[in-house]
Design a protein around this nucleic acid. Sequence first.
DNA 1: GCCAACGTTGGC
DNA 2: GCCAACGTTGGC
Length: 133
Amino acid sequence: MQYWLMKSEPFVWSWDQQVAAKIAPWTDVRNYQARNNMKAMKKGDQAFFYHSSKGLEIVGIMEIVKEHYPDPQDPRFVLVDVKALKPFKTPVKLSDLKTHPALADMAMLRQSRLSVSPITAGEWKTICQIGEK
DNA sequence: GCCAACGTTGGC
DNA sequence: GCCAACGTTGGC
C-alpha cells in the first residue's frame, strides 16, 4: 500500500464537502508530476487531505477507491475517485510538519507547489500520531 | 498584496 | 534544444 498527500483549497473543495459527497473525483490537477503521482495510485491506497491557502493543515485521511481514468475536461490529465475515511482529532499544521525532524524530507516540503505528492510509510505514521492525539 | 519557486510558452 | 518572458501556486 502506498501513501499520498493531496492539496485542495478549502474554498474550492473542502474536507466537509468531501465527507458529504462520500465518493468524489479529485479534479483539476494540471501538473504533469502531480498527474503521474495520481497514475501511480492503487485502489486502497490512503491519502492525506491538506487544506492549502487557507487552513494550511492536514485535516483527515482519504482512501483511493477508483484508480486513474481520463479527465473528461482534458484528456491529457486524469482523475481518481476518493472517499473520506476519518478526520484527524487534531489537524496537523504546516508549521508542525516543518518543525518535525522526521518530516524534513517530505516531498511536499521540498516542492511546495506540487499538489499531489508521495508520503513514505514512516512519514505517514509520524503524521498520524500527531493527528490522532 | 508580495514574492519565491516552479512550470509553460514561443521565438530563435 | 535553448532560454527569456510570462503565468501560476501557495506560503507569508
